[in-house]
Design a protein around this nucleic acid. Sequence first.
DNA 1: GAGCGCCGTTGAAGCGCTTCGACACATCTC
DNA 2: GAGATGTGTCGAAGCGCTTCAACGGCGCTC
Lengths: 348, 348
Amino acid sequence: MVTLAEVARHAGVSASTVSYVLSGKRTISTRTRERVEKSIRELGYHPNAGARALASSKSNIIALMMPLRTDMYVPVMMEIAIAVATTARERGHDVLLLTGQEGPEAVRRVVGSGLADAMILMDVELQDQRLPLVREAPRPAVLIGLPADTSDLTCVDLDFVATGRQCVDHLAEFGHRDIAVVGEAAAVYERHTGFAERTILGVRERAAELGARVLHRPCEGSYESMAGTLARIFDERPGTTAVIVQNEAAIGPMLSLLRQQGRAVPEDISVVAICPEQVATQQSVALTSVAIPAHEMGRRAVELVMAKIEAAGGNGAAEATGPHTEMLPPQLTVRASTGPAPSPTGAP
Amino acid sequence: MVTLAEVARHAGVSASTVSYVLSGKRTISTRTRERVEKSIRELGYHPNAGARALASSKSNIIALMMPLRTDMYVPVMMEIAIAVATTARERGHDVLLLTGQEGPEAVRRVVGSGLADAMILMDVELQDQRLPLVREAPRPAVLIGLPADTSDLTCVDLDFVATGRQCVDHLAEFGHRDIAVVGEAAAVYERHTGFAERTILGVRERAAELGARVLHRPCEGSYESMAGTLARIFDERPGTTAVIVQNEAAIGPMLSLLRQQGRAVPEDISVVAICPEQVATQQSVALTSVAIPAHEMGRRAVELVMAKIEAAGGNGAAEATGPHTEMLPPQLTVRASTGPAPSPTGAP
DNA sequence: GAGCGCCGTTGAAGCGCTTCGACACATCTC
DNA sequence: GAGATGTGTCGAAGCGCTTCAACGGCGCTC
């Protein structure tokens, strides 16, 4: 492996000069800089990551912790991870992938060893085991998702309360007064992941304001579970004219079942989904939906964490990189699955 | 941060002794070892990753390169990644996540900087851009997937040829003689990812041997695309009694459409899927399927790569860690979607 | 034209760890 | 009991980089 010293010798300068060319932390004459850059290219030099980390106490690595919950919709997790990785790379950082396997201890290990300069935590629970460790860690962290207590923490998430409200708003405009919510699997609520509850909260709030009724039922992703859920909904509230779905895996089965039952979408029943755009557009009926901005969430998380890293390295706390919560505004796209509420049976 | 030197002082021994306690590369008396371990615990010591990497030229990091092709089924990719991460962790290594963003250059960067001790490449194409760099890299690598030329390379993959054969075998036993294959999106074939072609190859081979006819059509994951594909299949081969599907996203739409068309599964038409177990079991009809052993693939890849790392570090080339291809045997699970071929129209 | 400041460059001191050779001491062997 | 062998510990030399203090030379100013 080529070392900095060899580049220096080859270019006829000192090692420190090469280092400064690389980092740009000191002015170097154009003449010298070009000579050094030429040597770097000719020798195929790559700075040694370990040496760099040791000397600068910066690894240029961000740890991404993602517990692998089987009840989460995987493509969204993946899209966030990809967004984190690419954004980090654009900013000269690499991403270390940590799974839930290791438990909260991973935080201590990664921070303690200086392996990563910062952390991004996904799939945060309301009472997350990792939070105490994160709070006392001497490295910056950003959460994707909202815990119960956000004090001293920086979080990014979709504004699920606003999402719920927006869904109801849209349906109410079409005259729907009896709305069902097909939610995530029961396990998600029991685990108190927050986002599912927050959506329902928004839905309930807005429905109350507008005088609409809401029936909420959790639902697994399977066809069978969906069949049961739908049956229960129409049994308890035969007048239901609209459904809000927040379980990506349940969407396909639901549309399939509605069709089977002779319920036309949107003529007999309107459907609003809370899901990635791709899922919304690939169904038999293009779905009116609120998108999960997975890419945006990953990107923002990296930007926030990088700002923290830079703030910690340089001046005291000049920029506003302190703890705060960033809620991404929901965006509802109207497609073909929502329409006017059918007039009540018996009316013209 | 606590350093090795501080631990040594606290325990009343030299730094090297602490190092040997940590690595176990030299015998240490029980008395001394316990004293050192106690100090480590009391001080909350974590070895500095950078320093370690520098001194030992081992980072204990494995790079996982996964290009983000939108036409690949994401959950499988994710499961592989998770398996890689957890298996690596069990063996004392961390995983660096690299996306396709950076291109083949990423190989050079990671290897050149000594950031990773080895690489695992996912989603390998027949003529993969990364292969030349991998071949000349001084670090071990394992591919998940098969390129056209596997010489000098170590690869892990499901045996897709055998998979195709096995599907046909199963259907033939039930008397099916007219089999359709609903394949991946056309882009997958154009990209020459190999696995899709290999499946068809196996299907064709075995069908020829058994005297069955095969009709192969690529298909996108959307409902519309599936509708078109099915229509074409039944138009060209009205006598089709069985379908093999190899596009996870297309499965839901397909079952939904078949039902709509009044074709009962498995009475009128048998369906075999090549997909993860979870997908097979969550449909309206539990599907007879060949599983994609994503977890196993990730695990084996790590095991192979670790064997290479150890072989490179220690002796010359004692163990059999040389280049070779490891094909995982397919496993077909019979569920409710396959049955006897219906007797031809007109027959009793 | 002496003095000042600035720019570009350098040498040297670590960063925290691994590892090699050496050494002190205890244990055998004949 | 002298020499051969083994065991447990230590000191010191790096690993390849960053960064600080310092320095030589240049163009200014007054």
